[in-house]
Design a protein around this nucleic acid. Structure first.
Length: 486
DNA sequence: TGAAATGTTGGGGCG
DNA sequence: ACGCCCCAACATTTC
């Protein structure tokens, strides 16, 4: 038996399709390691909801490893220090991990790689988090893409050319080292909230590899075939709900892509057809987000379009509070914000609506919203979150030649036509007839009282008037636009 | 992966 | 039966 290999688990908390683990298993004894070093994420410390998820996911991973008579060694502190100590304690001669792409993490990992890089120590890193790594794709002039459609077209061609891309199966056994290094107990990381506010999150999610496969299975059994019709409907389960699982690497995009392909083949759906499926495009947006953050690492904090540095954002703490609490007076916005608070997740269509409301109606800086999402989402992901908020604010990668402003009433009526979503999350206005549900302030007095609503008391008046807010936002945009050409 | 303004069409009421 | 107007519904343009 040779000396052991350290497998450093990071955002790949699974056993299947895990290239670092697979390579380590081929080498002999394996020591799976997780290191809790939150400060190394830089400014973007894990939020409360994400921490809860991480705890659950690590618990699940530990159980899966124990089933294979292995275990997860848990450490805390500076990653390099911990890895050095582990190498010393275990006499490991190799360290493998799957790559991450956030700017601060890339920097840290590079240092670690340099530290261990010598002839008698094997350090190897792998891709499993993306279909194509951020540097694998460039436009014809050798530059990074900034527009989604041509980017994704190029990606699809490259994926096609690379061949089938079958996921790696989980190891049947993992060889244990002669002696296990010492490990912290999971509870010692103190990832769980002290006050149990996660009830709603717990009821809605099953973190871990099994939970991820469960959602994938449910999605592919039916939802994916209606995706074009239902993907924008927050009132039904029309999406995959895989985002947190993907973020923590409980499932890989390659596994998803492969499973979609299998599901389509089983129904005799031709490649020409399923390759057009909108769901694949969603995987594409995730890839694009990573591509952008890698090539424009400042965009987590700064707008991609520099002219937006001068955008006259407002300072509006009351507005921010109302938005966060779901008390803006716009039902679809409030429903979304409450779903987020309660479940740690929000339907993507509604994310766009609430984000547009924050940046266009309240004129609060997109970064403010990004931070709130970061703290409250179980799928908080720096690349995706950054792209989403910059797209909404209009300062990111959006090919639209106009300043996009969502109308919260129109959007509500279009995507929650029966009002099931609003009624679920904003029960105090549930009695309103459909006609007024998305615009209670326009309802006749007698309908309001029949619905037992006292606007301003039982449910807020709109905190801004959309049509006016829209004009103000357009004016603000006009200002930076005219400066751009000066 | 918008929305509002503007343009066009066609059915019905009415003299 | 006819022309005229109104306006809702739908389509196109523009930001």
């Amino acid at each position: 038996m040779g000396s052991p290999t350290l497998v450093w688990f990071r955002q790949d908390l699974r056993l299947a399709d895990h290239p670092a683990l697979r390579a380590a298993c081929e080498r002999g004894a394996v020591i799976p390691v997780f290191i809790w070093s939150p400060e190394e994420d830089g400014e973007w410390l894990l939020g409360g909801a994400s921490k809860w998820w991480l705890h659950q996911s690590l618990k699940s991973l530990t159980q899966e490893l124990e089933r294979l008579e292995s275990k997860l060694v848990i450490r805390r502190g500076n990653a390099l220090d911990q890895l050095r100590a582990l190498v010393h304690e275990t006499k490991a001669t190799a360290l493998f991990w799957n790559r991450r792409y956030e700017p601060t993490i890339l920097e840290r990992d590079k240092k670690i790689e340099e530290h261990f890089g010598c002839d008698d120590f094997a350090i190897e890193t792998f891709n499993s988090h993306l279909l194509l790594e951020p540097w694998a794709i460039q436009n014809k002039s050798g530059k990074p893409f900034q527009v989604f459609t041509p980017y994704w077209k190029t990606c699809l061609a490259a994926i096609e050319a690379a061949g089938p891309g079958k996921p790696i199966v989980a190891p049947k056994k993992i060889e244990a080292p002669i002696k296990w290094p010492k490990s912290l107990g999971l509870d010692e990381l103190e990832l769980q909230p002290k006050i149990d506010w996660v009830k709603g999150i717990r009821e809605n999610w099953q973190p871990g590899e099994q939970g991820a496969q469960g959602n994938l299975k449910r999605f592919l059994s039916e939802t994916v075939f209606n995706y074009a019709e239902t993907r924008n409907r927050p009132d039904v389960v029309g999406t995959s709900r895989l985002s947190p699982h993907l973020h923590f690497g409980e499932i890989s995009p390659r596994q998803i892509l492969h499973a979609v392909k299998m599901a389509a083949e089983k129904k005799f759906i031709s490649p020409a057809v399923w390759r057009q499926w909108q769901f694949l495009t969603e995987l594409g947006w995730r890839e694009f987000a990573h591509h952008l953050l890698f090539h424009f690492p400042h965009t987590a904090n700064e707008p991609l379009r520099p002219e937006f540095k001068k955008f006259p954002w407002h300072d509006n703490p009351e507005g921010l509070k109302a938005w966060q609490l779901g008390r803006t007076g716009y039902p679809i916005v409030d429903a979304g914000m409450r779903e987020l608070w309660h479940t740690g997740w929000m339907h993507n269509r509604v994310r766009m609506i609430v984000a547009s409301f924050l940046v266009k109606d309240l004129l609060l800086p997109w970064h403010t919203g990004a931070k709130w999402f970061w703290d409250t989402l179980v799928d908080a992901d720096l690349a995706n979150n950054t792209l989403g908020w910059q797209w909404t604010a209009g300062c990111g990668a959006d090919a639209a030649p106009f300043f996009r402003i969502f109308n919260p009433v129109t959007q509500g009526e279009k995507f929650d036509p029966k009002g099931d979503y609003v009624r679920r999350w904003v029960p105090e206005i549930a009695r309103l007839p459909d006609k007024w549900l998305h615009q209670p302030w326009n309802a006749p007095r007698e309908i309001l009282s029949a619905s037992r609503i006292d606007l301003g008391k039982t449910y807020p008046e709109p905190i801004v008037q959309h049509s006016i807010a829209r004009d103000v936002a357009l004016e603000a945009f006009q200002k930076i636009k005219s400066q751009e050409t000066m």
